[in-house]
């Protein structure tokens, strides 16, 4: 489903060359819940950006859903992000001037859905995260946990194959964090592949699989068998 082979990502300035990812190898199968951990500056977010086609990479091969995305155009990247990937961010990244329904329908508009389909998907997504009654509220009128649930609803509305979450509980208290984690687990159980970056060891333990990144490389691998199904674990430490 997601296969990275020997991926390198180098940030180059006039004086400094920074290797954010080096010889990075990872394979994620459909339906997995993978948690990515590692110290600050290890390359977790860079990995997530590359995985989500938000950034390109310097070397290597990346197959997403069986398609080589190494040299796709910007438009094609945008289309893949829109149709196949859902993003959840630590800072929620909701558009403050749009109400919840409008926030959720943003990716649906770019996908070209008509208003009827958008409405159906928005209501369904809000229902899924338990905020169906807050359709017309603006993000600042909600708590942090609620905002993150809206962000999840926005990611889910497009019915993506992947959810990429960058420290989704980082700005939440422990209770809210647990609720969000439970929500993500439910989404995963419904079949969506999730890759989540976190610093929280408790959350990391709850995932099926834990990938650790140090200095831009996958350096350790731990599998937690949380469900009945056994998922193939093919991450290869570099």
């Amino acid at each position: 489903m997601l296969s990275m082979k020997n991926i390198s990502k180098v940030y180059q300035s006039e004086l400094v060359e920074t290797h954010a990812l080096r010889e990075f190898n990872l394979q994620v199968s459909e339906g997995e819940f993978v948690v990515v951990t590692g110290p600050s500056g290890s390359g977790k977010t860079t990995f997530l950006n590359v995985a989500g086609l938000l950034e390109g990479f310097s070397q290597g091969e990346y197959l997403l859903d069986g398609v080589d995305v190494s040299s796709v155009s910007d438009n094609e990247s945008a289309r893949i992000r829109n149709e196949k990937i859902g993003f959840i961010f630590q800072g929620f990244n909701l558009i403050p001037d749009l109400n919840l329904a409008e926030n959720i329908e943003v990716p649906l508009r770019y996908r070209g859905f008509d208003s009827k389909e958008r409405k159906r998907r928005v209501e369904q997504a809000l229902e899924q995260v338990g905020l169906a009654s807050r359709l017309k509220h603006l993000p600042p009128q909600l708590s942090g946990g609620q905002q993150q649930r809206v962000a999840i609803a926005r990611a889910l509305a497009g019915e993506p194959r992947f959810l990429l979450a960058d420290e989704p509980t980082g700005n939440l208290d422990s209770l809210m964090a647990r609720q969000v984690m439970e929500l993500l687990e439910n989404i995963n159980q419904a079949g969506t592949t999730i890759i989540m970056v976190t610093h929280d060891p408790e959350l990391a333990r709850r995932a099926q699989r834990n990938v650790q990144i140090v200095d831009g490389q996958v350096c350790d691998f731990t599998s937690y068998q949380k469900s009945r199904s056994t998922t193939s674990t093919t991450a290869e430490p570099a």
């Binding site: 910007d74 438009n75 945008a78 289309r79 829109n82 993003f87």
Partner: peptide, 16 residues
């Protein structure tokens, strides 16, 4: 720009 970043991330093309 941050809002545009979000829009780009969730699927807006440069043209849009």
């Amino acid at each position: 720009a941050p809002e545009v970043g979000v829009r780009r991330a969730i699927g807006a093309s440069r043209r849009q």
